[in-house]
Every structure is written in structure tokens, then in C-alpha cells.
Simulated scan of single mutants.
Amino acid sequence: MDERPVSILAICGSEREGGNTDLALGYAGRLLRERGARFEVLHLRDHRISPCSPCGDCNSRPVTCELRDDMPSIVARMAAADGLIYATPVHGFGLAHLMQIFIERAGVGYLRFERPLANKVGGVIVTGRRYSEASVHNQLVDNLLLNRMILVGSGFPALLRNTAPDPGLNDPEGVDALERMVHRMLDMCLLLRRSRGECPDDPLPSYDRNERISRRGLPV
């Protein structure tokens, strides 16, 4: 069995340093590190990510996006991790724009070609004041499933509300859901690692890794 620490990478879509989303990820990191996992946070606010351009050839091009920014290095870090957490606040009743730009560029420009996140364990954390947390959570869950990731059930989703003017982990039920999620993510990562040691074959067939390849192995 692979003896390296399990690696969990969190993608943070918050513009606000030290805000509710950062606090939630800080707590998640403490829980995971206490169990021996390696946990890192990639703050989208610290990276240059271009919005999708009007080139219009995303559905026909045979290679990854040619816009020059930090996306290739971000995708490489995602592909190297055992598990991923997408964490974002609610903005304007929807997904914060940094996370929206990221999932568009990552998915259409890079991930769709080889599905490098397939069979990685995924989780979602959403912070908000009062409204639309569930719809934002659903959008990110759909994105994880689109990329053939494994979403581990953990009871209620990790939706953390804070109506106070200052950042804080003031939602006991949301914090409890976060705790359950990160522990089950780590448990699943360890289980998958053990199973791969016993059965090293890739359980994801090639025709399901690239959406441009049909079940018969022919381009579509």
C-alpha cells in the first residue's frame, strides 16, 4: 500500500482573505492534518485566471485552451491530489465569480480532454449569509460528478451560514456537516488507496475518461 500521506487540495473561490470561507477551510485543514493528511489551499484570488474568451471553438478543438494564464499549473496541482474540496461563498444569490470563471476554464479548457480528476474524492463547502447556499452547492456537485469524481455522502451538505457582521464559524450544524465530510473524504481516500494496491487496474474505462471518445473507442 502507498505509505505517502493522503493529499487533499482545497480550491478557494473567495476574494476575502480571512472571511468565512477561509475560516471553514482552516478548520477543515486542522481536522485533516490531525489525522496525518497533507492539506493545502489554493486561493483563486492569488492566481491569474482569464475568463473564457470569444474564440468559440471550445467544442471542436482537439487540444487544451491556449489562453495564457495560471490554469495549467492549477490543473496540474489538482491532478496530483488524492481529493479535492471546492469552497466558495455565495455572491448575488449564486456562485462567486472567481469560482464560476475557474470551473468554466478548467472544465471546458482542460479537464474534458483526459478527465484527470476521475475517481478522486470530492467535497464541497459553501458559506453564505442566508440564501441560495443549496443551489450553489448543487452546481458544484454537478461539476464534480461531471469530472467522474467520487462524492462521499456525509449527511447534510457542508453549508455554513453566518449572519453576523464579522467572519466566524457560527453555524453548529454546518460545522458538524463539514467535520463529517472531511473525515469521510479521508476515509474514502484511504479505502481507495488500499483497493488499488490489491487491484491496480484502472476502474475507469478509457471510453469514459474522454467525452470525445465513444464507447466503441471511436472519436465522436
Score class of each variant (00 low, 15 high):
residue 5 P to G: 02
residue 6 V to T: 11
residue 6 V to A: 11
residue 7 S to T: 12
residue 10 A to W: 06
residue 10 A to F: 07
residue 19 G to P: 12
residue 24 A to F: 01
residue 26 G to P: 06
residue 27 Y to I: 01
residue 29 G to Y: 02
residue 30 R to L: 06
residue 31 L to K: 15
residue 35 R to E: 15
residue 36 G to P: 07
residue 37 A to D: 05
residue 38 R to L: 14
residue 38 R to W: 08
residue 39 F to Q: 05
residue 40 E to K: 13
residue 43 H to Q: 13
residue 50 S to W: 09
residue 61 R to M: 03
residue 66 E to D: 09
residue 67 L to H: 08
residue 69 D to T: 10
residue 70 D to C: 07
residue 73 S to D: 15
residue 84 L to S: 01
residue 84 L to H: 01
residue 85 I to C: 02
residue 85 I to Q: 01
residue 95 L to K: 10
residue 96 A to F: 03
residue 110 Y to R: 06
residue 111 L to W: 08
residue 114 E to Q: 11
residue 116 P to N: 11
residue 119 N to L: 11
residue 125 I to F: 05
residue 131 Y to G: 00
residue 132 S to E: 00
residue 142 D to A: 13
residue 143 N to S: 12
residue 143 N to W: 15
residue 146 L to N: 11
residue 149 M to H: 02
residue 151 L to H: 08
residue 153 G to F: 07
residue 154 S to E: 03
residue 169 L to S: 08
residue 173 E to K: 13
residue 173 E to Y: 04
residue 174 G to C: 04
residue 179 E to K: 13
residue 180 R to F: 05
residue 183 H to Q: 08
residue 199 C to G: 10
residue 202 D to K: 13
residue 207 Y to I: 09
residue 209 R to L: 15
residue 210 N to F: 08
residue 211 E to V: 04
residue 217 G to F: 10
